Amino acid sequence: MSQRKQTLFILSLVLLWYSSNIGVLLLNKYLLSNYGFRFPIFLTMCHMSACAILSYVSIVFLKIVPLQTVKSRSQLAKIATLSTVFCGSVVGGNISLRYLPVSFNQAVGATTPFFTALFAYLMTFKREAWVTYATLVPVVAGVVIASEGEPGFHLYGFIMCISATAARALKSVLQGILLSSEGERLNSMNLLLYMSPIAVLVLLPAALIMEAKVLEVIVSLGRQHKFLWLLLLINSTMAYSANLLNFLVTKHTSALTLQVLGNAKGAVAVVISILLFRNPVTFIGIAGYTMTVLGVAAYGEAKRRYR
């Protein structure tokens, strides 16, 4: 492949990655806040069901990546643990979207490096250079400032968003610990293949117990809004696409490029969500979010330099 074609290919992947990530985020917000669909656990189960089916098709039939097999009950138990934590992060994020604007949700989500560094230190005693830890100060300070300046601040939504962010970081650290041996390592697509069905088994009873009359209400909503089922299908497919494209972008770019693109993606999502949902923003809120994003960028650069 020529250099020009390679560049166009990567740009296309990044554009699709942005579209799927931002699309699923905005559709989640639309369904949960504007469409009367108030079932974040069931919505997450739909996402995981799509990931289970499409992962199987992509790996077994389309052979996008080689199939990796689970070699022991111990490895399966570790994958189940990761799946449960992952469920908690996605459900928490979806619950927060019922109460918080997407822009503030993204600002809080940008603090993932803080929790990752914290869990890595507590669970593996892995220490970074002091400069690296210093860069986490603006990451946290930015969210504190953004919280003060957020007109749509909701305490419960904020707690759910922080919990989801912490769970996402915990899953990342746990993955490095539990699947660290050479024989147990799985690439992200194979890990998703095995995690998704386990997640569905966890989420289905949780939805039926915790979200009263969920099936009855959804059927009723489907009759009132003829596009509900189509939106759910598109939303769930995009949830899988976001994972697939994240894997492909990671494969074809460097870790530093991925981090820069990820920070930019959050900023793009914030701008688009404000334009679409027209939620009020303040100068203080924007300043806080900007500080957090700059802190995350500095954290990534410090980790690269002092590794």
Rank of each mutant, 00 (worst) to 15 (best):
Q106I: 09
M160K: 04
F61N: 04
F104Y: 11
A267V: 15
S83A: 15
S196H: 08
Q224A: 13
Y156G: 10
S83I: 03
A267L: 07
F283A: 10
V296K: 08
F37V: 03
L294C: 08
M238P: 04
T237F: 12
F125L: 14
L54C: 06
T292K: 09
S2D: 15
V281W: 01
L191W: 02
G109N: 07
N187A: 07
A134N: 07
A264W: 00
I274G: 00
A269I: 14
L201A: 09
A242K: 03
S163L: 15
F115R: 02
G149C: 05
Q75I: 06
F247E: 10
Q3G: 12
V108D: 01
A164L: 10
T116G: 12
L67Y: 13
I59N: 01
T132C: 12
K303N: 13
P66H: 09
E128F: 14
Y156E: 13
I95Q: 02
P66C: 13
M1A: 15
S236K: 05
L208P: 09
L31D: 02
L192P: 01
I159S: 03
K63P: 01
L54V: 11
A302L: 06
P40T: 03
V70C: 10
I274M: 10
V293E: 09
S89G: 13
Q6I: 09
A129H: 15
Y156M: 14
V268S: 00
F104V: 05
L245P: 00
N21M: 08
T282I: 11
L31N: 02
L294Y: 12
K226P: 02
G142Q: 01
E182K: 12
L13S: 03
K126R: 07
Y56L: 08
T257S: 15
S147Y: 08
V108C: 02
T135R: 06
V249N: 08
T81V: 15
L15P: 01
E211R: 05
L276F: 06
L170P: 00
A77C: 15
M1Q: 14
K29M: 03
P40G: 01
T292W: 12
E150Q: 07
